[in-house]
Design a protein around this nucleic acid. Sequence first.
DNA 1: GCGATGCTTCGGTTACGATCGAACTATGAA
DNA 2: TTCATAGTTCGATCGTAACCGAAGCATCGC
Lengths: 228, 228
Amino acid sequence: MKEGPDIAQIGALIGDPARANMLAALTGGRALTATELAGVGGITVQTASTHLAKLEAGGLLAQRKQGRHRYFTLADEAAARLIESMMGFAAGRGHLRHRPGPKEPALRKARICYDHLAGDYGVRMLDSLIASGAIDAIGDGLALTQKGENDLKGIGIDVGDLRSSRRPLCRSCLDWSERRAHLAGSLGKALLSSFLDKGWARRTAESRSIMFSQEGDRQFLRLFPVDA
Amino acid sequence: MKEGPDIAQIGALIGDPARANMLAALTGGRALTATELAGVGGITVQTASTHLAKLEAGGLLAQRKQGRHRYFTLADEAAARLIESMMGFAAGRGHLRHRPGPKEPALRKARICYDHLAGDYGVRMLDSLIASGAIDAIGDGLALTQKGENDLKGIGIDVGDLRSSRRPLCRSCLDWSERRAHLAGSLGKALLSSFLDKGWARRTAESRSIMFSQEGDRQFLRLFPVDA
DNA sequence: GCGATGCTTCGGTTACGATCGAACTATGAA
DNA sequence: TTCATAGTTCGATCGTAACCGAAGCATCGC
């Protein structure tokens, strides 16, 4: 029996805790080596190696050899979206690996979600963009308005460049901590990049959280106000 | 270790072949009994029972007791979307359970996807609605136009009723056989229902395919033309 | 009450796959 | 060349979870 795609294969791939941890870590967007991934998975390198091979064969991971290192990333945006949508679903059902830890608050405030900003700040940014009329929310979709395009130019983002990529400009992404949407897509990526470039924020070494500087915090809150 | 939602749990739930088959069968939208699900899973009822309990505990399934039967459905639209997005991803990677079988062509032509029309006909319908200006495609999102609302009234669908539900009116859903989008959301559901009510099409007993009558076929193709 | 049907729980078996130690290959540095 | 680091492959072990037979509830029809 049966017609249709084989869900069980990729389910099983994601279903192993060690592999799931590695995938979640790669949600952070940066490429990691096999040894680093063994660390986040809590397993030895040999074991990690076989896991990584399976994930790559399953189309979830891509690797790039560089010298004697092997850097792994999520295969593409589709893979990233799958993982993120599973995180959203899992969070909605209370399937949390709740070991609160000290990094938690920072993670809820602002973190990276593949290549864009998530957490409280990510949600706030999208809300603000919609409230100001820079983005229209239509059904599930998001569309940049003319006003939005002008506003963005003011902070140094040229939307024309972004449109040339095949990737959608705006996409909404469900936030597992806030359970509300934040902005993904090439525009989401560009915005985060600009914050990092401006020195408003920086990525932390070992976690997916994003640390805003005092000045960056001030600027961000000014740029994306929320009226309650 | 780790912060964040536990992907591994639901991954493992979906990762078992028997469970995956049951979930895929429920993608057909209709409620199935435990014994029926045991059949599609290819296992005995005892085993199915434990699987179903796990799926329910995991928030993927909901059950409704009715007499001495227990009817299972996907827990909600979020669960359905997760399964469908996994099917889309799996299909894109060529993870097919290819046992072509005789039902395949019918399935590719028209099938039910949770509660709306998918397959060749589903894709065609959305394409046609966009081409005629009834629906605007904006980024990832779909929005019904005024013209669309009028057109729909002509075939007996009152959009006002649909808007009252909290569920989004239009949503695009990736088709695993066509690898293109078709129309989901409450409007997608309403359209399929109207085809069934009109007698243009009927659901088959054991498969997810939808059979159009000769007359239904003619009407459908007239209503949703594609100019090539 | 009775048996029949639908489903769950229990107990024991079995198989698959995750795991690691050890040996092996590849790249880089000295 | 030799040593060190990064990663893979092999072989063997071990745990977990899927599985089914049998027994136990629950609900229906009579």
